[in-house]
């Protein structure tokens, strides 16, 4: 089996300060990898390098493209990369307003990616939008409402629908449950798990919430000061952490 994503020696520097350095891993189809670490550990920098939002200073991000197989997304042309980011890739932002058009209806938000890849039949676009709203538990009657009229949890689900409508293969998530009530978080996590399983998605989830990765991620990468300090199966890293920092991280979680 070939990996979907092959990351080699990614480095991003901010002047002399290290954003992230020497990061390598393979992600296989259907795998969900969590990246944990405290604020400033470089996890978001890494995610943005992987998703093409930031240009890394060194390293390769090889993606198994549908047309040409493995291809370095760092050196590919910008149109090609942007095409990937609205077809095979999805990016779920922590703040829904960064990932949604707040002045466009829910249906329009979901339909945008379809229209961006050439859909030109209003009825079909709308049907697909409604179908996806249903899959993220948003009622059909809300299809013409704007996201500003939605609760935080609904906005986040809408963002997910908008991202998944074109059937991507790789989803990047930046703190997808951050800032939500715990009950809303649980619903979202359940939804994400179901979608990952049904669609065979691969995902990279950046979060500082260990409970979230335990439930969502198969594998875990622990970052500190821009370096990867530990990787492994999620439950193994959490239950038998090897690195001092991971032990500290795990032992610092409040028990409920």
């Amino acid at each position: 089996m070939t990996p979907l994503l092959k990351v080699q020696n990614i480095q991003k520097l901010y002047g002399k300060r290290i954003g992230c350095t020497d990061v390598s891993f393979d992600l296989y189809p259907g795998e969900v990898m969590g990246i944990v670490g405290e604020s400033g550990s470089g996890k978001s920098t890494l995610l943005n390098c992987l998703a093409g939002h930031l240009a890394p200073d060194a390293g390769e991000v090889m993606f198994d493209t549908r047309a040409e197989g493995m291809k370095d997304t760092v050196t590919m042309s910008e149109p090609e990369r942007r095409m990937l980011s609205r077809t095979d890739w999805a990016f779920v932002h922590q703040h829904a307003r960064d990932g949604l058009r707040m002045n466009v209806s829910a249906g329009g938000n979901v339909g945008e990616r379809l229209m961006a890849v050439g859909a030109r039949h209003y009825g079909d676009i709308r049907d697909q939008a409604i179908d996806w709203l249903g899959r993220v538990e948003i009622q059909e009657s809300r299809v013409d409402d704007r996201p500003t009229q939605f609760s935080g949890g609904m906005q986040q689900r809408l963002q997910i629908a908008r991202n998944l409508v074109t059937g991507p293969r790789l989803v990047f998530m930046d703190e997808p449950t951050g800032g939500l009530d715990v009950s809303v978080q649980a619903r979202l996590l359940d939804l994400l798990r179901g979608l990952v399983r049904e669609m065979g998605l691969s995902a990279i989830i950046v979060t500082h919430d260990l409970a979230v990765v335990r439930l969502l991620a198969d594998r875990l990468m622990v970052m500190k000061d821009g370096h990867v300090v530990e990787t492994g199966l999620t439950d193994q890293v959490l239950d038998d952490p090897q690195h001092a920092y991971t032990q500290l991280l795990v032992s610092s979680v409040l028990q409920v």
């Binding site: 058009r101 466009v104 209806s105 249906g107 329009g108 339909g111 945008e112 229209m115 961006a116 013409d144």
Partner: peptide, 18 residues
Amino acid sequence: SLEEYGLMHVKLYEDISR
């Protein structure tokens, strides 16, 4: 420059939906 015009149709979509 990249001929990304999906957004134009979003505007028309919004028109029809409203």
